[in-house]
Design a protein around this nucleic acid. Structure first.
Lengths: 154, 154
DNA sequence: AGTGAAACTCGCCGTCC
DNA sequence: GGACGGCGAGTTTCACT
């Protein structure tokens, strides 16, 4: 019921590259008619394989040209402090991604801002205001070499 | 000509959250008729604010449940070696993202695989086969705390 | 599960304000 | 720069296989 056959996989690959493909175009590429394609897509949506459809914007054109990774280690590792940090991070719009990591560093944050001044403001007035942060180490992206939007489908 | 007014910004926010909204629904939310919405979207596409439309899939359901960050430092920093590394990384399907960084570490890679065994295989047989890699340091994601798909629009 | 066709809605374009 | 209207195209459903 929830296994993917070969057509499902090809469908997912096509849709994660271009969500605007019409059922007609998809049907032509997969050698089927409109109905089965239509129903397969709805099935993949309902089972949760497809979570949503989004427009991908250009961050440089939106003035978000500085990207940085920020490694955060907590002073104490109490559950309450960890939970508090995770809650606070959700509220910070500069934080695009946040991961709880294995190893010396507790959290890795991906940050998007418009300038180094904004980054300074973010660290000084927002991030470091969260209590119990021990070490805080930022590294900046010089160039984006690769950024795949879709996942590899086996 | 290429500046965004308030309606453009609201339009971009709505579309990067849900690309399947119809012009009709967008028009209703922005208190306009269909034509201006339609033309604004085409304008935002042509100017490059909207790069593409994609379906967002569930990586866990696709069996890509292990996520890791891999820090790579080159032995020598010749332009030719750097270019070669960047080329090779493009070919590796496990590498979701790759950034050239400022600081001690040269590159930061975000890796998606299905198991630790696959990760081992990736490092041993693919990544470390690229010449001139000096230090290679992997850290695994325990939990995804936050992952915004859209950018913050000022 | 897939085909083919019918009904309905939306995207798209022209014209007008 | 936005409103209105008509045609083509896409989506959605159904009866049949």
């Amino acid at each position: 019921m929830d296994a993917l056959d070969d057509i499902d996989k090809r469908l997912l690959r096509l849709l994660q590259a271009d969500a605007k493909l019409t059922t007609k175009e998809l049907a032509a590429q997969l050698n089927l008619t409109l109905s089965p394609i239509y129903e397969r897509i709805r099935r993949l949506e309902n089972l949760g394989y497809i979570k949503q459809y989004v427009a991908v914007l250009d961050k440089a054109m939106l003035g978000q040209s500085i990207m940085a990774f920020c490694q955060v280690s907590m002073r104490y590792h109490d559950k309450a402090f960890i939970n508090k940090f995770e809650e606070e991070v959700q509220k910070l719009e500069e934080v695009q991604e946040c991961y709880h990591m294995a190893g010396q560093v507790d959290f890795l944050l991906k940050i998007h801002v418009g300038s180094l001044g904004e980054y300074h403001d973010f660290v000084k007035n927002k991030l470091s205001q969260i209590e119990n942060i021990g070490v805080l180490n930022s590294t900046f992206v010089l160039k984006e070499i690769k950024h795949d939007l879709g996942y590899h489908i086996a």
